[in-house]
Design a protein around this nucleic acid. Sequence first.
DNA 1: ATTCCACAGGAAACAGTGGTCC
DNA 2: GGACCACTGTTTCCTGTGGAAT
Length: 400
Amino acid sequence: MSDPVDRIIDSAKDGKSILKDRSVLHFTHIPNTIFHRDAEQEKVTQSLLPILKHAKPSNLLIYGKPGTGKTLVVKKVISKIQERVDQSEFPTKLIYTNAKNESTTTGLLISAGRQLGLDEKELPMTGLATGEVFKRLLDCIDKNNLNVIFVIDEIDYLAQLIARSHKDTMYQLTRANERLGRGSLALVGISNDLKFKEMLDARVISGLSEEEVVFANYDVDQLAKILDERIGEAFMPDSVEPQALSLCAAMAAKMHGDARRAIDLIRVAGEIAEREQADKVTARHVRDASQKIEENKEETALKSYPLHEKLVILAVMRAGGSSTGEIYTSYKNLCKATAQDPLSQRRVTQMLNEVEVSGLIDGRIVHQGMHGRTKKYKLTIPTETVKRAFKDDLSLEDVI
DNA sequence: ATTCCACAGGAAACAGTGGTCC
DNA sequence: GGACCACTGTTTCCTGTGGAAT
C-alpha cells in the first residue's frame, strides 16, 4: 500500500486541472465588463464627474443587496477618474473603508486617516477624542489641498454604531466641506439596507443623499450570463456542464440575486470536482458546494463566539425548545461544570438575542397567561455541527 | 374587571483597560 | 501624574406585556 500523502500529491500532479485561473473567481477580481450595470455606472460617474472640473462632487448614496455589483462599479468609476485627473495640479485621493470591519466610529475615521498617510504618531489608535481625530483628518486634507472621495461600504453598520454611541460623526462628515478652506471631501455611502436611513437624523439624510443610485437584484438569466463569462476565464473549455451553470444561477437568484454567491458556488464546485479528479463540474458538485458553504459558515460562526456565548448555545442545545428561565438554569449548571462564574440573567437574555440574530437559534415569544410571558429558543442547526465546532475548545471538554 | 406571572428589554451606571495630552 | 477620552462588558433597576386565573 502506497503512502497516502504521496498518493494524493502524485494524483494531483498527474491529473489534469479543470481550473485555469481561480483568481477570476475571487471576490476582489474586477471584471473587464460589468454586465447589466450600464445605467448605474453612468449615474455614479455623473455624480462624481465634477471632480474632473476641479469642483466638489455631490455626496452619493448607493443601495443594493449584497452581490449586486455596487462596490465593483464604484471602484471601477473611481479608478477611471483617477486616470484622467492631473494629479500634480489637482491631487485626488480615494479612501475606501468597510464599516462592518470597524467596531467603532473612531476606528473608521482612523482607518481613513491611515489611508491619507497619517501615521501612528500623527493619529494614534486610542486616547483621542472623536472630535480631535476628525480635526486631524480635516487638517491633513486642508494642508495637502487634497480632493478626497471617501467610500464607506456597508454604511448601514456605521449608522448603527452612531445610534449606539450618540455621536454626530455622520453629520460632521456630510458637512466637512464647510470646515475645509482648501481641498474637498465627498462621501460615497454604500448600503445593503434600503431602510437604513430611518436610523438617521433628518439633517444627516439631506447632507448624505444629494444623489442616490439603486442597484436592482440580478435575475436568473443575468446571473447565468455573469457566470458564463467568469467560467470562460476561470475554467478549461467545456469543463463545466450547462446544468451546473444553470443550477448555480438558480440557487443564487433565490438569494436575492447574489452574484458573489453564484461565483462562490461555482468556485467551490470546481474545487470539489478537481479533488474528485472529475473531468467536468456537474450539478451534483454544485449541490455539494452549496452544502459545504453553509456548513462552513455555521461552524466558523460558532467557533468565533466567546466562552459564555458558547455556553449559552450549549444550554439551548441541552434544554431545546425551553424558556429563557430554563435555559438560564441549564447555563448555570454548565458554568458550574466548567468552573466559570455565571453572568446575570439579563446578560444571558441579551446574548440569546445576539445569537438569534445570527440565525443559529430561533426564538419565539410565548404568552402563557397566568404563567407569564417568556421566549422559547431552539437550535436551527444540527447538534452535531455544534459539537464539531466546539470539540477543540479545551474549556468545554467536560460538557460536550 | 382585576390580578398575577415570568419574563423581555430599555436605560443608566459602573468597572476596567488602554491610551493621549498637558 | 492627573485629567480626560473611547470603548467593552457587565450589573442593577425598572417598566411593560398578554392572557389565564380569580
